[in-house]
Every structure is written in C-alpha cells, then in structure tokens.
Design a protein around this nucleic acid. Sequence first.
DNA 1: GATGAATGAGGATTCATTCAT
DNA 2: TATGAATGAATCCTCATTCAT
Lengths: 218, 218, 218, 218
Amino acid sequence: MPKQTFFNLPAGKRKRIIDVAITEFLENDYQAASISRICAAAEIAKGSFYQYFTGKEDLYLHLFELMATAKGEFLKENLPDPQTGIFEYMRRLAEIGVEFELAYPRLSKLGYRAAAGNALPAGFEERMQQDTLAFFRRLLAQGKAQGSIAPEIDEDLAAFMLNSLFGELGRYLMQRAEAAGLRPGENGNSLFAEPQIQALLNQTFDILEKGFRQDLRD
Amino acid sequence: MPKQTFFNLPAGKRKRIIDVAITEFLENDYQAASISRICAAAEIAKGSFYQYFTGKEDLYLHLFELMATAKGEFLKENLPDPQTGIFEYMRRLAEIGVEFELAYPRLSKLGYRAAAGNALPAGFEERMQQDTLAFFRRLLAQGKAQGSIAPEIDEDLAAFMLNSLFGELGRYLMQRAEAAGLRPGENGNSLFAEPQIQALLNQTFDILEKGFRQDLRD
Amino acid sequence: MPKQTFFNLPAGKRKRIIDVAITEFLENDYQAASISRICAAAEIAKGSFYQYFTGKEDLYLHLFELMATAKGEFLKENLPDPQTGIFEYMRRLAEIGVEFELAYPRLSKLGYRAAAGNALPAGFEERMQQDTLAFFRRLLAQGKAQGSIAPEIDEDLAAFMLNSLFGELGRYLMQRAEAAGLRPGENGNSLFAEPQIQALLNQTFDILEKGFRQDLRD
Amino acid sequence: MPKQTFFNLPAGKRKRIIDVAITEFLENDYQAASISRICAAAEIAKGSFYQYFTGKEDLYLHLFELMATAKGEFLKENLPDPQTGIFEYMRRLAEIGVEFELAYPRLSKLGYRAAAGNALPAGFEERMQQDTLAFFRRLLAQGKAQGSIAPEIDEDLAAFMLNSLFGELGRYLMQRAEAAGLRPGENGNSLFAEPQIQALLNQTFDILEKGFRQDLRD
DNA sequence: GATGAATGAGGATTCATTCAT
DNA sequence: TATGAATGAATCCTCATTCAT
C-alpha cells in the first residue's frame, strides 16, 4: 500500500526506486537495509520517500506484492491444462517455477530471503504459505478424483511434502544446470530443453508418482 | 570461540547469558539483535560481554556450535542400527529430529532462522548444508547396496529431496500434533507413541519407499 | 570537505560550531577530542553534526583549511614589496606572522598543535612543511641573485634554519612582549611599534644578515 | 614515580614493559595509547600494571625520565671541553644530539612527539624547555666572556634562536644524510665522518659565528 | 509535490581502573 | 605479589522519521 503519489510517478522513476530497493533488501537484513541508502541510490530526496511510502515496511511489503503479482501473471500465462494428468501438471508447475526465477531472478531471491525473516508483519508470510498449501491440497484432491493418487494418502501430509520439495526444486535444478556447465537460453531458450535437466525432472516426478499413486497390487 | 573467560564463568551465569542470547536472536535479525539488550537482560555489564566474546558474531556463532554439539550428542545416543533397513533408519532419524526439537526447542528454532540470514561468515551455513547432503548421499548409496533403492536413482537428486523433506518434517509433525490437541509427553513420553503421528510417519516413509525402491515389475 | 549542508548554515551557527571545535581541538588530542562534547557545546544534535561533516577528521581538516585560507589572505594583504631587500622582506614576514597570531590566536595555536599529531591523513602535515621550505628556498635564491646572500650558502640548509626560527619567532616575541608588560594595540596598534620589540627584531635580522651575507673580506 | 614494585621486577621484564610502552606511545596519541594493549603485548596482567604504576600518566612520565637520564649520561660521557671555544662546543653539542638519536632512536622520537602534546602534566614540558634555554644562556654568557660573541647580543633572544635551531638540527641532518644515501656506521662509525655532513655542520656554525661574533669592524 | 536539514535514540565497541581472590 | 574478571562511562557514528520551506 504505497501512497497514491508513488503511483503517479513517471514509470521510469518508479522502476528505479523499486530496483534500488530490491538490491538493498537482497544485500541486507530487513533491519540493516537502509532507507538513506535507497534514497541516495535512487536519487530521490529522503522526504520524497515518505511521500511515496508509509515507511520501510510499506516498501518491503510492496516488493512482495510485486512478486506475487508477477508470479500470478506468469502462472496465468503458462499454466498447463489440468486435464493432462496430475503429475504432468506438477512437472509443468516446477518448470514454470524455474522459468520465473530466470525471468525475475532478483525478485524471486527476495522471496527466499524472507522465509526465515521475522520482519514481516505477523501473518504475512504464513498467509503465503497457507495459500500454497491449499493449492497443493486441491491438486491432490483432484489427483485422487482422477484415480492417480491413492485414496488413503493424507492430503495434508502430501501437500506438505510437495510444498517442501517445490520450494527448493527450482534452485536445485538451476544449481545442477550450473554445475553441469549449462546456461539458460543456449539450447533452445529453456533450461528444460537440456536432456540432463529433463532426466532429473523425469526422475523426480517418477518418484512422486510411484510414491503417491494408486498402487495396483497392494 | 568465546574467550576463556566465558568458560570460566559459573555455569548458572553462563546459562543465563546463553538463554538470553537465544531469545534475542530468535526475536530479531542478526543485525537487529542488540548486545545492549542482551547485557541488560542477562544482567551483566556491557564491558563484561566483551570479556566473554569477541563481539556479536562470536556470540552468534557460539550458539550454533552449541546446537551442533547438542544435536551431535543427541544423535550419538539415539542413532539406530543402520542394519535395520534404510527406510526404517530414516524413519528413526526423523523421530530423533523431532525429539531434538522437543528437547531444545529454542536452539533448533535458531537453526531455522539462519537459513536466509546473510550475516553469517561466508560458508558457515553452506558447510552445514553440505554435511547434511553428504550424509543423505551416503545413506542412499547404502540403500542401493542393500537393494532397497533402485540403482538408476540419481543420488544427488534424491539426497536433495530427502534434505528438503527432513528439514521441515519435524516442524510439520509437531504442528499436526498440536492441531490434534496432542501434547508431548502425555501419552508415554514420546509424541510418536500417538497413533495419529505414527500413521503420518508410516505414510511418509511408505511414500518414499515406494518412490525410491527397486521396482520389481519394471 | 565538509558537506554542502554545512555551508548552507546561517553564518552565526557555522561560526559557533567552528569556535567550539577549535576550542575542543586546542584542549585535546585529536583522539581525545570528542564529537559529543562539540555537539553539546555548539548546541546541535549529534545527528546534525554528521550532516555537516563526514566525521571527526573532516572537521579537523576543515579547521586547517580555514587557517590556511586566513593566513593566505592575511599575507596577500600585507606582503611587502620583495624589492626592498631580502632581509627587510623577511623581517616584514615575521611581523606579519605575529600579527596573524594576534588576529587569529586560537587558529594559529591549532597549527602548532598539529606538529606532533599523527592522526592527520598521511602527508597533510608534510605538505604544509614542504610548501614553507620551498618558499624559503625561493627567497634565498633571490637573495643570492641580489648579492645579499653568499653564493656558497647551502640553500636547503639555510631554508631549514629560517623555517626553524620563523616557526617559533612569533610566539617568542609575544612572550617577550608579555613579559615586558606590553599589550598589543596599546601603543599605536601594533606590537612592533614598541621599541623593545623593534630592537629584538632588528637584532634577529642583523644576526641573520651577518651570518648569511656576502662577506666582503673573506 | 613508578611504584617500588616495578623496580623490584627482574630487569628483563622491566625492559619488556618499557619497550612495549615506548612503542605504544610512539604509535598513538597519549589518549589513544592503550594500557590494555600494553599489558597484552608485554604479557603482564592488567592488575599487575597498576601495581607497578599509578596509572597511564605515571608510565608516560617515567618514559621521559628515562629519556632525560639517558641523555644526561650521554652528555656527561661525550661533552667536550668548554675551553675549546663556544662555537666548536656548540658544534660538538649538535653532533652529540644526533648521536643520541642514533643510539636511542625510539626514546628520542618520543621526545619530539611530546612537543605539541598537551597530555603532560602542566609544567613538565615547560620545565624541560626552561632548562634548555638556561643552558644556552649560560653558554652565550660564556661566549661573551670569551670575546667571541658580541656584547650587545640579547642573550635571551639568542638562546631562543639556538634552541629553535638545535631542536630540529639533528633530525634535519639525519634526513639530509638519508637523502644523500648515507647510512650511519658505514664510514667510520659516525655520520659526521661523512664529508657532506661535515660541510653542513661547518656552514651552520659559520653562519652562527658570523651572526653572533664580535664584529671587528663595527 | 518535492526537498533536505534536524533530530535524538540507539548501535557496537573500547577504555582505564578497581578489587576480590 | 600476581591475577584477571567486572564495571559502566564514553567513544564515533547511523538510523528512520518529521517538518518547515
């Protein structure tokens, strides 16, 4: 909830402020991040800052809103057909997650940074988590309906497992790609065109599928 | 590496300082944590603090050492026989993890907090992660040797998956127990005596086992 | 290089800060001089100080710049015609030196204080010395050209001698005047109107002249 | 006036403390010099320090006493026959000054450092100056008696001039020697064996002699 | 709407010295 | 006599925020 004045700003200036702020919050704890430095780097008067934002927290929260919005739009554009089967859907989800990180590397890093932070207003972080968990629960329920997930699976537990995994999978794959000397955009324009990364994704969802599926013989 | 002076202190005073410090670092970013507040709460002179520790970082690191030591001893005492099969072993590991959290709730919370911090001396956090991952890789290799894990499983990927899961499982189970109105120590003296928690653990490792195991029919 | 903010200050406030600072640095080592005390005495907030100056050193250096500027202007206004002969010129120089001390007693004392300090940025003090020595060397070369200084005189050595002498002469004369019960401004408006002081100056430059001059009979 | 306990110390330990202290006071302002550092470097307990000395000032003053004693003994051993003529005597004096600096470089540097300091107890520094000036006045009176100094010379002024000059001459000559690439002890074992340095000393005292002497023709 | 000076609380840390052992 | 832990005042400096222009 930045003030209206902020949104009245020329887009360039607004972007400059946001970019500078992301950098500052990436490089420093919430507490250690300095409004003074942000103003200096963004070349705005300190007084102006307080005409755009209520204060430090206001700015910080706004960055998350930006991230949420960006991720939301990203998903809307890329989300696959849920009909394709639950595991294929999840696999595509993971790919989109990585693509989002590649598209907004700084913004998504900021998200990780917040995970253990406590500077966020109580409940903010939790709400994000709850939303994600609810999403996975819906997905799992759908899987059960489709018959590809065993009915006895505890949906809450499984949602937790998927959440733990997905929260880190993107970074892991990027790290593996880097370790293998791959660079995004070289082969086709997606990391996932790389056979090695393909194989890793395949195996990940094979494991999940085997673990979760309706086991015919038991 | 607190100074010798610190270790010469009467145990009670030392404990008081540590407890106060844990609280401070739990409630604040590294940067925001205040030596002044710690001194005031621990009722020691500010000058004394610097006779015990090199500085803020020294204290912070010491808390991690304490945690590492505590966890190490905890494991040494409780670690099961690896012969019992890899999944039984992992299951016991998870239980121990939860028990550690119950035994040292504040210390282990501090560990989670560090995940996103950037104030730690470079490499400290990473080293901890590397150690854990290496441990899981060894475990998986052993599982392959025992024939309970499919040989085509990428050990690095699987270690990452287990690490993601285990890092959060303890907290999740405690939260589920709490949601179910259970309290540790009421039924027998372990949370795991509770049938509901037992069931969750069973299912978790069933899923993993199915996912990872040598698949007979393929 | 105080910040622009400082120069934007009303002249009175600026002067108050400078006066207080001079006092503080006169009464204390560089290290012992206290920004807190300066702020208190100048009745400015501690935060404000750091909006005017980069830090302690910045302030300290600024005092020297002030002195250099003041002395420069003082000389520009009072410097005699070099045509009058080298010793007459030097004599006038000494008088101006004393007059400067009378006009800016605290500022010039600050200059003496710096001699043994080691907190100044490396080279600052030395550069001042080098400038003075170079000035004397030029003067001596001129004297040789005029035939009033023996050509075999080592200019570097002589410059050093003059520098040693001039650095202290002002204070010495003032002290003699004080010991004789004279007060500046009582007799005419210059100390040098006093016959006793006149005599001392005469003798000083007689000695130098005899020592340095082209000795006709040798 | 260190306490008796200090003088009861084994000579080695005493020397160690003194050496460390000289270093500390050479590298720092009086105020910035740290008893803690001295204790650490000298490997004595902080409590012990206060059993040897009253406090920081006590130690500092003791270093000056040591210097005074050392210089006194140095002079006693090297002082020439005053009969040899006043200028020859002064010349020898200057040489001894330099030799003292070469023999006790750190101790004598400490002396310079104090010149502009204000940390010395009031009067200490002045007394040293007064002693030196008195010495020069006696020397000049003697020169008048010997007929080598003009009777009309103001003894106080001349003493001041000599004092200014001698206070710096040693350092100047060493610096010249260094600039000329000379090193003490290479040629004979004295810097003064060097012809260039000889020449400078000769000229210095020629100048003084011409300036001060009974001028035959006036 | 923009500015940037003013504020003073608070930060980590070092210090000389005392004193109980 | 030797020790070294305890002390708390004092250090410089940074901060987010306010407010008059």
